[in-house]
Design a protein around this nucleic acid. Sequence first.
DNA 1: CGACATCTTGATCTGGATCAAGCCAGGTGG
DNA 2: CCACCTGGCTTGATCCAGATCAAGATGTCG
Lengths: 239, 239
Amino acid sequence: MSNPLVQKLESRDTLSTDERQALAAVIMRTRMFRAGELMIREDQVLTESTLILEGFAARTKTLRDGKRQITSVHIGGDFVDLHAFLLKKIDHSIEALTACTVAIVPHRELERITEQHPHLTRMLWLSTVIDAAVHRTWLVAMGRRSAAAQMAHFVCEMFLRLQVIGQTQDRRFRLPLTQMELGDIMGLSSVHVNRVLQDLRGRALLQWQEQVVTILNWDKLSELAEFDPTYLSMQKVSR
Amino acid sequence: MSNPLVQKLESRDTLSTDERQALAAVIMRTRMFRAGELMIREDQVLTESTLILEGFAARTKTLRDGKRQITSVHIGGDFVDLHAFLLKKIDHSIEALTACTVAIVPHRELERITEQHPHLTRMLWLSTVIDAAVHRTWLVAMGRRSAAAQMAHFVCEMFLRLQVIGQTQDRRFRLPLTQMELGDIMGLSSVHVNRVLQDLRGRALLQWQEQVVTILNWDKLSELAEFDPTYLSMQKVSR
DNA sequence: CGACATCTTGATCTGGATCAAGCCAGGTGG
DNA sequence: CCACCTGGCTTGATCCAGATCAAGATGTCG
């Protein structure tokens, strides 16, 4: 089985054969979700975690008045709820944004990894720590950047993350998010998202048609976003 | 030494004598910072982590145009840069908001914990995962709540976190943040923070004088904030 | 074919930013 | 001991980025 998680971890440190086997062994079964389906309901107590093999998913929180915020977007190789291994109970939902194929990993198996594979444990821990780094980057973008810069930043981020798992061709990639979902990611209205995208298109920074994004000018886009990929920890170092 | 970290971890799961000793042994030395001092500079490569014993600190990111965003506020018992153990390099600064006493923990020692104490490892991992949960809560507040609700939420959060380490008396606690810092936390201007605070005072939800906050009406404050403490994981369960 | 989602555009409104002063307390230097 | 300065808080006036409301265009799917 081609495993995008291994691919992602290997981009950050080398895994031993032993560790790669341990990771493979931990996957008990796979499962599919349809687009729009709820993968995990808020406040559920979890005993297994979910690794995306294929597709896009999001962590979402909906307030009483119906306003929704997406706190992260996950792609192949991401453990959407690895943190639930330790939290046990999660205060947000996880939704499939597109059709998804996922691997199910019982917490018992993750616990076994922490008992027997210290280095692999650190690599999984690292994944959750990078999640947090992405959260911080979004906080900075929401709090202090203009909507255009925030959007530019998000596009740069998704480009690099998708590149690691081989889902980009040159400067082009599929990003199947509606403008309403983009609004929920950035804390904006869908109307404003539409205008921001027109602005970025107008400045010839990117194209965005039929769920396919093409970055026309990486330099200017990342300049506008003040994008620094450090937080994605994409260098291979011993951890 | 009274260790607020042990106090905090014990509120989430029981530690064995062995584990408590291992935690104590890991502290190589302590150090003090003055208010306003930079504890960690952005982009530094770190080989040790910093545990706050006493005082308030913040992770901050400053943009080119001088705008600043605070992405977390840390208090006694918090490892401000535990994530640096795995990230190695950090893309934000850490500033002492007040005078701080901290314990220094070499990464080598943390690595030894991951080799020898799986359960304690999970508890430290849990700390970083709760950090991320706080980030998500801030994202929701910044993206979708009114400034007043966001402020109310922040006050509720700080109250509970300070309560765990015994830094509250009844409904009153010291929160030594300027209105400018509050603005940097919530993505607002200090002028607006001032008006929001006046609003909350006017509604008799809280007092805030001389860096001391008194919650006058917890029910209404947490109602306004739609505050649900689940994300702080304050129940003692086996992890 | 109708129903529904998504995108687009225009008009208007508003929460919070920005700019500008004044106020107060504490600290410093002469 | 006073004059001054600095940092934080407060208030008022004005501005603007982005929200909200409304309607139409386009596409898709049962």
